[in-house]
Design a protein around this nucleic acid. Structure first.
Length: 493
RNA sequence: GCCCCCAUCGUCUAGAGGCCUAGGACGCCACCCUUUCAAGGUGGAGAUCAGGGGUUCGAAUCCCCUUGGGGGCACCA
């Protein structure tokens, strides 16, 4: 199996999903997973995108058995090179063979001529189609064009008949060659080969047995089959995956959806969540199991169960699955993965320092079940790492209270908390006296706790209060209470 | 325009002729738990299986048509 991305943009969700399905299938059947870079669109390809794609696939855990050398590392696999621009001689050799067998021919039509032809057909409400004008040029006619200085492209003769194949997910597909749009170009006038040609030459050369790709290639498959046959190669099995859709049910696009894997990584989605979610987009185990790790996915994966219908990308479900996986992470591992996000908070100026690993580890029980994405960590515990906390005085007054009560409550709470010594400053030591305090004054414990919460965190939604106070420490807790009391005084006055 | 593909709750899906008065999950709504927020638990609303014809004793499941949606038709990949 193979994944053959074009380095013409950052790693796209759709490419990642196709790679994942190839990977799952390859691992399930004990096959070989190949990565090939289709960089023949030189104008749009770049090394930066190439790196982005390879890094992204790695990040997702989709490791390939054969692929190009990167960052000084050797290429792996016996069928390299794995970049198409390094395989040019192979394409021209294959093209020469097709020309020698008269299965391909030089076409001298200029882009302008072809364009005019297409426009004419369009105006007549006819499907675009190459006329075949150069298909039966005689040797002298070709010589005349050559003498004229015209550089020909190469076209493949599609012939006639019906091409049929048994797609693993779609079943039998039959397409009349007459609908292929006429003989198609396989080599540009500048000598560079085109996608439909390179993909076939390479899939054959790399001994690809199963071509698993997006449904957008279904209509092109007959062209590929014709090419495999013309080259005398074995036609691989095909499996066309359902497309991933925008919310409006059109093919998922950058314009209407967040498609770059990088953006999901930056938000703090984790590979386990993304892999799990993507695997379940267009495929199901047939059981009610949904939270599945990569090994479980591999064990259960069957191309036969892949859906035919396209699937709308549902971010809510991704977030849920991501949260499931964050909760399943080993706490030390979570600390590890959180660090860059805390660093980002500091860089963005939202916190004054980054926590130590010990501090963070102690917080894991509080944060682990509250993170849908890693990027939410700042919202959750950022208040612990700021020197000067901004508190909206209005928030300090719980709904059922007035400012005076809030002030009294915080002053009383401050005294109670101050009575707890530094050494025994634990959640167990804090809760009972504060509850007693509330009861003594006839306050609802929740109201008192909310006032304290806002005073020390600036927020109404936080991890459990007493653990939060402990994390903050006695000194800072008291200081923030003092600041809040002062702020209330001003607001009340 | 032509060709190809597809069609079960808002979304992801289970379903391969009787187990379906259609199951699960996300989301939503209640309730429970609870100091807030989450997490978790329980329950609920939500799909006449796009519509219409067949086939069959029996159809979400098979066939046909219609409708709707999508994809493809480049010297892009």
């Amino acid at each position: 199996m193979r994944i053959a991305p074009s380095p013409t943009g950052p790693l796209h969700i759709g490419t990642a999903r196709t790679a994942l399905f190839n990977f799952l299938f390859a691992r399930h059947v004990g096959g070989t997973f190949v990565l090939r870079l289709e960089d023949t669109d030189v104008a749009r390809s770049s090394l930066a995108y190439e790196k982005d794609i390879l890094d992204g696939l790695h990040w997702l855990g989709l490791t390939w058995d054969e692929g190009p050398g990167v960052a000084g590392e050797e290429a792996r696999g016996p069928y390299g090179p794995y970049r198409q621009m390094e395989r040019l001689p192979r394409y021209s050799e294959a093209a020469d063979r097709l020309v020698a067998d008269d299965m391909a021919y030089p076409c001298y039509c200029t882009p302008a001529e072809l364009d005019a032809e297409r426009k004419r057909l369009e105006a007549a409400h006819l499907p675009p189609r190459y006329s075949g004008r150069c298909a039966r040029l005689t040797a002298p006619e070709r010589a005349a064009f050559d003498a004229d200085g015209r550089i020909p492209a190469l076209r493949f003769r599609v012939g006639e008949g019906v091409v049929a194949f048994d797609d693993i997910v779609r079943g039998r597909v039959e397409i009349d060659v007459a609908n292929l749009g006429g003989d198609f170009v396989i080599v540009r006038a500048d000598g560079t080969p085109l996608y439909h040609f390179t993909v076939v030459v390479d899939d054959a050369a790399m001994r690809i047995s199963h071509v698993i790709r997006g449904e957008d290639h279904l209509s092109n498959t007959p062209k590929h089959i014709l090419l495999f046959r013309a080259l005398g190669e074995t036609v691989p099995r095909f499996a066309h995956l359902p497309l991933i859709l925008n919310a409006d049910r059109t093919k998922m696009s950058k314009r209407k959806s967040q498609t770059a894997i990088d953006d999901y990584i930056a938000e703090g989605f984790i590979r386990e969540g993304i892999d799990n979610y993507l695997a379940l987009l267009g495929w199901a185990t047939g059981t009610e199991e949904e939270v599945l790790g990569i090994d479980e996915l591999i064990a259960r994966f069957q191309l036969e169960n892949v859906h035919k219908g396209a699937a709308v990308f549902d971010r809510e479900r991704l977030e849920w699955l991501n949260g499931q996986w964050i909760r399943r992470l080993d706490p030390d591992e979570l600390v590890e993965r959180l660090r860059p996000f805390l660093e980002a908070e500091r860089v963005a100026g939202r916190s004054d320092r980054v926590s130590t690993d010990d501090e963070l580890r102690a917080l894991m029980p509080l944060v682990q079940e509250r993170l849908p994405v890693l990027g939410a960590i700042g919202e959750l515990i950022g208040f612990l790492f700021v020197d000067r906390l901004e508190v909206d005085p209005a928030l300090l007054v719980p709904k059922r209270w007035d400012a005076a009560t809030a002030g009294a409550g915080l002053i009383a709470a401050r005294e109670t908390i101050a009575a707890v010594s530094e050494v025994t400053f634990e959640a167990d030591e804090l809760e009972p006296p504060l509850r007693a305090l509330a009861e003594e004054h006839g306050w609802k414990a929740g109201d008192l706790f909310m006032a304290i919460r806002v005073a020390v965190t600036g927020r109404t939604a936080t991890p459990p209060l007493f653990d939060t106070l402990v994390a903050l420490g006695r000194e800072r807790t008291l200081a923030r209470l003092d600041a809040a009391i002062a702020a209330l005084g001003v607001a009340a006055g």
